[in-house]
Design a protein around this nucleic acid. Structure first.
Lengths: 230, 230
DNA sequence: AACCCTTAGATTGTCGACAATAGTCTGATA
DNA sequence: TATCAGACTATTGTCGACAATCTAAGGGTT
């Protein structure tokens, strides 16, 4: 889909790495249910690796906040709630707002050109079938701005941490959000601000953009008390 | 010193946990130099545990961005640079600004009272010897606001991730920043905004507060090209 | 019947040994 | 002398086994 799933590493890939990526995908995409227990022995036979590998993979998932572990008891996939998803959106608002600000300052001319090309490409998709833009396109747009911030810490936090969490919540809570066309217009305005090197405006627009999404979720929270599949 | 170092866990503490905390402290406090290699066998004998424990501890440090690891080659403490520290301050500005905003909305009356009590206590210290406030007091103040945000994701990111990194950079780059008395005044203004439940203002003041610190560092960067002990 | 203690099973934590890979040194050849 | 091939050493990656801990079942007591 896009390069968020498997980061661009020049270094060798070990069995523990593969198991980590596989396990994470299985959880994020919902093949392993939220709240379910992760038995080391069970996963060991399932993925055909030793328990040590499984343990390392689980440890990393704990670091990502995808899994919680209690000593001598075991590891469980985190429990999902709309409140938790809202918390994540608050963090996103903060971090991606800063990313947009820094992108306006630091993006190269090429990166800006590519960002606009991406939007033009999306414009066509939006007219045809609005379905495409819903997921991959949105992720791509945000991803490029994050990378454009040129801030390593920020990039790592968002692409290796927050984004997988957000996706997990959205998939498992069944948040196939609408907001397609309006979101597209917001993306255009953000890209414009970045092209104008207007850092203040870029940050403000990005924060609003994410705030709208969050409010959209909060609205669902209040209209239908519990939607979670848990 | 304060509860950031060892989080409040009700669960049992395993040998891997202890080793992780010890190793992290040794690195953050500079007893293990930045950029140095972490030999598993060496650390195994040094801390008196098996290599498996060391490997788990290192894995966790990698997740914290304190250590970098290449497959089949080994792990090194991250290289320090003022540029990296500045990147961290940008992330802090973003996250702690949001924390202040949320704290103004969500802090309990007790928490606000305690925050003011802390500031009063500091006021005395500042008059006597300005040295105290430099480190622990500053951390305490920020810590309470982070906790006051009541956003689990935000709290974890800051207290288990960013803060140890910032401290490591500051210790090892020899950043015993001045800005003592002015910082204290800024803290007072932030606390006032939170007490008034003025979320907008609290965020703005916190962001400025951290921006000032960052600019203070950037100034050093330009005046003395390389200060790093590496 | 309710409660507590003991015991058995299963799961996690820890360890030492083996396998695989990276880096180094030697030595032969052009 | 410079360079490349190959073996050797050291370090990391992976594995299966043992130890420690938690959970549940069973029996006994009040």
């Amino acid at each position: 889909m896009n390069s968020i799933i498997s980061p661009l590493l020049t270094t060798a890939i070990t069995a523990a790495d593969k198991t980590f990526y596989t396990l994470r995908t299985d959880i994020v995409e919902g093949r392993i249910a939220a709240g379910s227990k992760l038995s080391e022995a069970e996963l060991s036979t399932k993925y055909g690796v030793s328990r040590a590998i499984i343990r390392e993979a689980i440890s990393r998932l704990v670091s990502c906040h995808i899994v919680e572990r209690k000593a001598n008891i075991g590891a469980r996939v985190v429990a999902l709630s709309l409140e938790g998803l809202i918390e994540l959106y608050q963090v996103r608002e903060s971090l991606e707002g800063m990313a947009a600000r820094l992108a306006a300052q630091n993006m190269t001319a090429e990166q800006i050109t590519e960002l606009n090309a991406l939007l033009n490409q999306h414009a066509a998709s939006v007219k045809d079938s609005q379905s495409y833009y819903q997921e991959a396109g949105d992720v791509d747009f945000h991803y490029r701005i994050i990378i454009g911030s040129h801030n390593t810490q920020l990039i790592t936090l968002l692409t290796e941490g927050i984004y997988h969490l957000v996706r997990m919540y959205r998939v498992q809570l069944g948040m196939a959000g609408p907001r397609v066309t309006t979101a597209f217009a917001e993306h255009q305005h953000i890209a414009q601000a970045i092209a104008n090197r207007d850092a203040e405006l870029a940050e403000m627009l990005m924060r609003r953009h994410i705030t709208y999404s969050r409010q959209n979720i909060e609205h669902k929270l209040h209209s239908q008390p519990q939607k979670g599949s848990l």
